[in-house]
Design a protein around this nucleic acid. Structure first.
Lengths: 253, 253
DNA sequence: CGAACACTTGATGTGTTTCAAAGGTTGTGG
DNA sequence: CCACAACCTTTGAAACACATCAAGTGTTCG
């Protein structure tokens, strides 16, 4: 009974959980067979978004949770008059929509920076997850606490670092995230515009441009056609006075 | 067996969980008897801190979690050269140290604004909490996601609101939090200095002072000997262009 | 070919910081 | 009980980081 998405053949999705490419990455913790079984039965579909598409909208009541399988996106909030603040960037392995699932309504939006593929989970099965798989419930708490930690650091940047330090911090941060998410095999190009940088750091577009120039004069990075290439991640981190991401085994659902 | 803190008489602590004054407040969800039993056995002590005392230190490996029983505190981070950013304020019912417990090391510090009393929990019993009481595990995730939501809004403020809007937002926010935590029975005085406001909003002390003056000229608030009295919470919220706290039944441990 | 978008750059203006100093309050020790 | 230090608030003046305005270039795309 409980029917739901029964008859869950391993081949049902293009990316069966048992063969999820994310699991091969170091940086993600290993799952037991039972956990994997549950997760694959928790999964209810896959979703693709174009670059520029809005994946989640502020105010929305979503019945779903998502895990990013591939691609880049970002979370943001808007003020009534249109001012935008980007809260964080979303990479493969990241979970989307947890806040909305727990508290009913999204309080931010999510937009795709590149084509994105997502794993879809049923919000209604969340309770069962906590009941049957305490370890996964623990992981969800870990994920939420981890995002909180990152937001703390962003807030420190926007509140107390200078424009140059902030920019160095952001680029260094995204670069490390991309590395640990296994994105950018050889290349170290970040698919964002200068407007994204400005809206993340609380700066104007013009001043962001001038600040990025200073960083590239110091040979720390280079701006490309559409995106930014990191030349010296350590240099950026040092300039920002940042400790860097210290991540152990990261869980994901 | 499992010994641990055996012989847990109801009268062991000054504030037995079954008579916890916080539970009477609207705004907190009701607990089942079983949940209450577990929590009271999860509790391992009580702690008091003086005003100005540091409760948790960045970098620390704490074996404990805390719930605030009474008093005010704040979470903050420091840059190497001493610049300080306050991330959030801590009121009765709030949980402290979850990040540290899950990820090994605190990445921020906590300082008491007034005398504070805390409930102490054993970090080592966290796993058991998830295993035996899924509903409490769910609550922990809820709490972490909720803090994330608040940080999103703070980041929006510091990044994109003007000094006047930011200040109005902060005072309105704290005022609403104090209200829903049942603090400030009749009075609406917030026990902070202007330096705290400055360090929360990413402003200098001098400019904070001048901005607060504008708010009091508009009769939205009034600065007292040591703290700030809210005169018109709705006015502040409107000036900030903020939606306000929309909280349903809030869990706490 | 024109429109939309992203980046660049110089000039100008201002919100905010920094510097400096003074007054009020509280607490402590002699 | 006074003297002194520490802390918080207030104010004015000067300096600067950053925002705004304006205009131009190159690219993509229908």
């Amino acid at each position: 009974m409980a029917s739901s998405t029964a008859g869950n053949h391993p081949s049902k999705w293009r990316t069966p959980c048992h063969q999820c490419p994310l699991r091969d990455l170091s940086g993600f913790r290993d799952f037991s067979a039972k956990e994997l079984d549950f997760v694959s039965q928790f999964k209810s579909g896959e979703l693709s978004s174009e670059r520029g598409a809005t994946i989640l909208v502020e105010g929305m009541h979503s019945a779903h949770l998502f895990t990013v399988l591939s691609g880049w996106a970002f979370r943001y909030k808007l003020l009534p008059d249109g001012r935008r603040q980007i809260m964080n960037y979303v990479l493969p392995g990241d979970l989307l929509g947890l806040q909305g699932s727990l508290m009913g309504e999204m309080d931010h939006s999510v937009e795709a920076l590149t084509p994105v593929t997502l794993c879809v989970f049923e919000r209604s099965k969340l309770e069962r997850l906590f009941e049957r798989h305490a370890s996964l419930g623990y992981d969800l708490t870990w994920i939420a606490a981890h995002e909180e930690r990152i937001l703390d650091e962003h807030l420190l940047s926007v509140g107390r670092r200078t424009a140059l330090e902030r920019t160095a911090y952001l680029l260094s941060f995204i670069h490390q995230r991309a590395h640990s998410a296994g994105v950018n095999g050889g290349r170290r190009v970040i698919p964002i515009t200068q407007q994204h940088v400005a809206d993340t750091l609380g700066l104007s577009l013009v001043h962001t441009n001038k600040t990025l120039r200073k960083l590239s004069e110091r040979k720390l990075m280079r701006w490309q056609d559409k995106g930014c290439e990191i030349l010296d991640g350590d240099g950026l981190q040092a300039l920002a006075g940042w400790e860097g991401l210290k991540e152990g085994a990261r869980p994901f659902i």
